[in-house]
Amino acid sequence: MTSTPALRALAALGIGVTLHPYAYDPRAEATGLQAAQALGIDPAVMLKTLMVEIDGRPACCLIPSDRQLSMKRVASAFGVRSAAMMPAPRAEKLTGYHVGGISPFGQRRAVPTAIEASACTAARVWINAGQRGLLLSLPPEAALRALGACPALLIA
């Protein structure tokens, strides 16, 4: 079985997940949507992991793969004045993962995390497991607990 820092972190917390491998397409314009389509998952519960900077500090947001972040809402959710997308090279260095395989779990350094509130009402959510072509699913409550995250309105 595949082992990633994300899966090891969840196992250490006693959180069980179901793994969902899929054929990752590096040419896909939207990898989250491509993953949802490949697995036949509703994009509303296929969450993409986005690294952001809030007042210059790193943070993580999980939102449905078919939606876009609202930087105004991100700033509000974290109680800061400004929010911006983190450049990909910085996100890779900070998390230890490659773009297309960034998981919120098992990152090199814990950062404040928020999950789109609308996704928190689902029975299960699908999130990257720490490598391209591998998702995990779990109840949103388990994701919130594992990440010390809060549900928030993040999408435009």
Rank of each mutant, 00 (worst) to 15 (best):
M1T: 12
T2V: 15
S3N: 14
T4E: 09
P5I: 10
L7W: 10
R8E: 14
R8T: 09
A9E: 02
A9L: 10
A9K: 02
A9V: 00
A11R: 13
L13P: 04
G14A: 10
I15Q: 11
L19D: 07
A23D: 15
Y24T: 12
D25G: 07
P26C: 06
R27C: 14
A28M: 08
E29L: 13
T31D: 11
L33Y: 06
L33M: 13
Q34D: 15
A35G: 12
Q37R: 15
L39G: 08
L39S: 07
M46S: 13
L47N: 10
K48E: 04
T49G: 09
M51G: 08
I54D: 04
D55W: 09
P58F: 04
P58R: 00
A59N: 08
P64D: 12
S65V: 04
S65M: 05
D66V: 14
Q68V: 04
Q68Y: 13
S70A: 08
K72V: 09
K72P: 02
R73A: 10
R73P: 00
A75R: 09
S76L: 12
G79R: 10
G79S: 05
G79P: 09
G79V: 06
V80R: 14
R81M: 10
S82T: 12
A84I: 05
M85A: 11
M85T: 06
M86T: 01
P87A: 07
P87K: 05
P87S: 06
P89N: 03
P89A: 03
L94V: 11
L94G: 03
T95D: 06
G96M: 08
G96N: 04
H98I: 15
H98N: 12
H98C: 13
G100M: 08
G101Y: 00
G101V: 00
G101R: 01
I102M: 02
I102Q: 02
I102R: 11
P104H: 02
F105W: 07
G106T: 00
G106P: 00
Q107W: 03
R108N: 08
R108Y: 01
A110L: 13
A110Y: 02
V111A: 07
P112Q: 07
P112I: 00
P112D: 02
T113Y: 01
A114Q: 08
A114T: 01
I115P: 00
S118G: 12
A119G: 08
C120M: 12
T121R: 15
A123E: 11
R124F: 10
V125M: 11
W126P: 03
W126V: 01
A129G: 13
G130V: 05
Q131N: 00
R132Y: 01
L135S: 04
L136F: 09
P139K: 14
P139M: 11
P140K: 05
P140G: 07
E141G: 03
A142L: 07
A142R: 07
L144K: 11
R145E: 14
A149V: 02
A149N: 11
P151W: 04
P151D: 08
A152Q: 09
A152I: 11
I155D: 05
I155K: 05
